[in-house]
């Protein structure tokens, strides 16, 4: 069973999609990556407003999409955030949201400034 409470997620500077070499997926990575800034911002607002339902719901969406676009670590981070949001464990949720956001930034970097950039 996945431990959804631990905070141990490796965050690389640059994160590449596992499906970068599949043209049909590489061609739509931007759909996922471009949706992340708004979602992260909404999640921060939900956290500041104590809206655990919205926070869990958005985390749930990212969890469902991340791995499909070749970012299993984003799915893993989103799963942890969904869990902590559902538990209304705000301290842990804030940490998970930061981790998720950093992963999203790394993925964005991977897409726009590939290897060595």
């Amino acid at each position: 069973m996945t431990d959804t409470n631990n905070t141990d997620i490796e965050i690389p500077d640059v994160l590449f999609s596992e499906y970068e070499s599949i043209p049909t997926i590489a061609g739509i990575l931007h759909v996922f990556l471009d949706s992340l800034p708004d979602m992260v911002e909404t999640m921060h607002a939900a956290m500041d407003g104590g809206d655990s339902e919205t926070l869990a719901s958005l985390a749930h969406q990212i969890k469902g999409a991340g791995g499909g676009y070749g970012y299993p670590s984003i799915t893993e981070a989103a799963l942890k955030l969904e869990h902590s949001a559902k538990e209304s464990d705000w301290e842990l949720a804030r940490l998970h949201l930061v981790q998720l956001e950093l992963l999203c930034v790394s993925a964005y970097r991977g897409k726009h400034a590939p290897a060595g950039g």
Binding site: T24, I25, G27, I28, V31, F32, Q61, G64, A65, G68
Partner: peptide
């Protein structure tokens, strides 16, 4: 989610 739709479609 348009993100999931795009992925499944692809």
């Amino acid at each position: 989610s348009p993100v999931t739709l795009a992925l499944a479609q692809a």
